[in-house]
Design a protein around this nucleic acid. Structure first.
Lengths: 344, 344
DNA sequence: CCTTAGCACTCTACGTACCGGAGTGCTAAA
DNA sequence: TTTAGCACTCCGGTACGTAGAGTGCTAAGG
């Protein structure tokens, strides 16, 4: 049920003020700061109503109001002004990409830094990957007489490596020939498309070992839906007043380890296109229940892509966050398109 | 000038107690806890003397004593009991390595985790590298019509990649032939040994671009004396009481970023073989001046190697730290010897 | 019926005061 | 040289009082 216009306006002001100051906002302060044509008493009545509707709460009896998770949700869904970055802001960001070298990993790291610095919160970006992983080319390098390094380049330009132990000695010549043969046979294929060998015709032990390693490597690669994300700005985020106590910092520090974060990213919120916002207890996992994600997919439709987003306390500048995430996602999409070529 | 035996004994007890409890230790507590055949007054006299010699201090007038950096230095140099890990401890650690797969990077990460968990402090390990980087094999993979991925495997089994843009279109066939040719020509050589081309005979633009990229890549690789280390246990360390205030945590968090840490590792202390201890203000850089490093090199003599160590507050179990670092360093050395083969 | 002035009440943050405990430094005697 | 004794110091915790910000309610006014 929608709020009355005045009530909604007051909610928006409470959110704005609280996001800015991190202090509970009182009726009188609100009236003065925004020159409302109302008395503080009226605002108090509205606040009481907003509290009944679950949009705001008190930390304690005689404190000002702070938005509840529900209030934030209402705010971002109905009240928040849409805003795009100004040309000036866009330029500042683009400029940094032009400074960097043409390297995908570097771009990802840079994008994360940019986001983190602008939003004073944690930025996370997963490496771009294709849904379908195709083998592009493999290489075999002798390390010891019975061990080799398998290097596989996949269609998303990822380079993967693994050592293989053979039951028999091998030489580089042999490996090079084998690599050429396997490239011809498996190149350009997904694991699912790998030709099944006629089992009656026994493979050489070496060949079998390489194929096994290759298959396993690509399967593992494909299985990992999302890589552990690149994370920047942990410190920026922890500087926010909500992390004032050190035990809170330590717990959060734990929660934003790349590996834990990978599983915590609420990917289901990204079913629809556009920027998704996941607030507080909309997160399933405990440690993130008073934080919010602002997430978007990046990458050309059907091509290699990943997730870019911001994680911070629920008290967050959602409008700016959305604008920044959207813009950075667009920039990354464009860079990837360039990198992999239009044709892909 | 050496301390009298009794005075040294008292210093050792102060260090031990303080390391254990993080509380300043008073004369009476010391006497009671260790059943010294002395009165607290005598101990107080000795403490006053130790303070004159700069070995201990007070936080304030009526507090117990804590070791100064100088006191720790004396302790580790002259008083600390040498200790090796018990067979039981050794087994616990070795066991974890046997669980892991045969992958060098994984070993490094595992070793760091083990160290961090046992010592409740930060563990850091640099990737193993050779002083001399030799090209083992290179591979060229077409990405776009005028862009390729250069993958170079170096003699320390490192896999390095870089994209190359060509002024002209290329095909995979051409790249494969070129790669084979360059492998024959440059394989097994260091950058310094790369044959200089006769400049009068012009290279193809493609070949020139690849050689330039390869040279640059190996040079960069060689130039970085130490990689940014793998770091584990940040949270373990920050849990120590010396990091009780949140601003201290944030500052430290900053100081232990991989990149900053790389430059802060006091490598010069590792000139002599064995385990090096760098205490407090023996560190040049500010943020580490109330922390200590316990470091060792690992890797077979003349072979690929790196640095393994612990970073924590100066109040640290130095004896255990040394024993653990030494043992893990030995284990890593053994693993590397196995991995690269004895012959190397 | 909505708005608002007025007022009693509540809770926090902060500063002051106070006290017990642990520890020191000094002195004088053993 | 060691030690008992004692006065002194400082921290940490608790209690208390106060100022400030804010609330909720009531009753009067438009």
């Amino acid at each position: 049920m929608p709020l009355s216009e005045r009530r909604a306006r007051i909610l928006a002001l409470i959110v704005d003020d609280f996001v800015g100051s991190a202090q509970p906002v009182g009726s009188q302060a609100l009236v003065e700061r925004h020159r409302l044509g109302l008395s503080s008493a009226t605002v108090r009545n509205e606040m009481a109503a907003l509290e009944d509707e679950g949009m705001i709460t008190h930390p304690h009896t005689s404190a000002g109001r702070i938005p509840s998770h529900r209030g934030y949700r209402y705010y971002v869904s109905s009240l928040m002004p849409e805003r795009a970055l100004t040309p000036q802001e866009q330029f500042t960001i683009l400029h940094q990409f032009h400074q960097a070298s043409r390297d995908l990993e570097e771009w990802i790291g840079l994008a994360a830094s940019v986001l983190a610095n602008h939003m004073h919160n944690l930025a996370l970006i997963t490496q771009p990957r294709l849904i379908e992983v195709r083998l592009k080319q493999l290489q075999l390098v002798e390390l010891l007489e019975n061990r080799a390094l398998l290097v596989a380049v996949t269609s998303d330009s990822g380079v993967h490596q693994r050592t293989i132990d053979f039951p028999v000695p091998v030489h580089q010549d042999q490996l090079t020939r084998l690599a050429a043969r396997l490239n011809a046979e498996f190149g350009g294929k997904t694991v699912a498309e790998f030709p099944v060998r006629d089992t009656t015709e026994p493979l050489s032990q070496v060949e079998a070992a390489v194929i096994a390693a290759l298959t396993d490597l690509l399967l593992k690669e494909q299985a990992a839906q999302v890589d552990a994300p690149v994370v920047e700005g942990v410190r920026e985020m922890l500087r926010q007043p909500e992390f004032g106590q050190s035990d809170r910092i330590l717990d959060t520090l734990d929660a934003v380890q790349e590996r834990r974060l990978r599983d915590a990213i609420p990917t289901d919120a990204l079913a629809q296109p556009g920027v998704a916002i996941v607030i507080g207890d909309e997160n399933r996992e405990g440690p993130y229940q008073d934080m919010s994600f602002v997430l978007a997919r990046y990458g050309p439709a059907g091509g290699a892509g990943g997730i870019v987003g911001i994680l911070g306390p629920t008290r967050m500048q959602y409008g700016d966050a959305v604008a920044h995430v959207r813009y950075v996602s667009d920039v990354l999409t464009e860079l990837i398109r360039e990198f992999y070529g239009e044709a892909d």
